[in-house]
Amino acid sequence: MISSQNRDPSRISANGLTVRFGKVLALDHFTINIPRGIVGLLGPNSAGKSTFIKTMLGLVNPQSGEMLIDNVNPRTDITTVRDNIGYMPENDCLIDEMNPVELVSYMGRISGMEKNDSIQRTHEILDFVGLGEERYRKIGSYSTGMKQKAKLAQAIVHDPNILFLDEPTNGLDPQGRDEMLDLIKKIGKSGKTLLVSSHILHEIEQVSSYVIIINHGKLVKDGPTQELMNPDKTRFRLKIRGETSAIDRFLHSIETRVEVISRIDESNQLSLSIICGKGNSFLFASAREHGIQIRHFGPDTLTLEDVFVQTFQGGG
């Protein structure tokens, strides 16, 4: 079974989900339990991220497998499921002839909101996403960043418990990305589950509490972000300075107790990534013995990019 099965009660789960488009196998017996919070869905292009989201939304019919969203099977009760979901598509989908007030309130109404409620809520949401000043302009005249905000607004107008955000920062400049990530964080604070699909790992690293890595339609790795970035907690970063011969003697003296993962020559110092067991006082003793200065010693965490690269280098 999957590795996250004993974590928080999952809101989204899939078991053996298979989706095929002709000869292309988009999801290959995909199995996952997705916990609450902001969850990053990572993978290279054509990995199956969007297909997984659309399958959960009922926009794609799987050939086999089971799925549950808040304990409701989308295949048998898609209307109930969709009532609890907001979806921000990756591609352009907005109705250019409308302004955001019309569009978002329209989406609110077809999500079951009363007309007056939907208009009131629309204005709140447009203020929230930062489109307050431009709310009566036709969407066709919007920039990419504004369109992304409008897409997010229509996805959250009915206050869904689960949000699927497909590449929310696509096409945004750095400031726009920061704004969008900030919005995602704020929504995440409200206790909702956000499944954020992206191939920009740095962004996911910033906002997500849980990460799913997918490739060729299969689950490659998943887990809490911090655990993935520092999986065994015995990895440290050691920066030392001293004579070259002294450094060689120092490294020779500790090599029986420490595994050096990487070694980077920086200006006037050497940066080492090491793995060592409990107790590390011998490092300091040996350094003193060989006249080496220890400039830095602390846990060495990976970036998601490192995790991603390592994952795929390892056969993922």
């Binding site: 939304l57 009922g58 926009l59 898609i78 209307t79 109930t80 969709r82 009532d83 979901i85 907001g86 979806y87 598509p89 591609n91 352009d92 989908c93 907005l94 109705i95 250019d96 989406m107 077809i110 999500s111 079951g112 229509q154 009915h158």
Partner: peptide
């Protein structure tokens, strides 16, 4: 042309 089917069908609209 707007690709807005997804807006409808991501909601409780058949």
């Amino acid at each position: 042309s707007n690709n807005s089917f997804v807006l409808y069908f991501s909601r409780s609209i058949t």
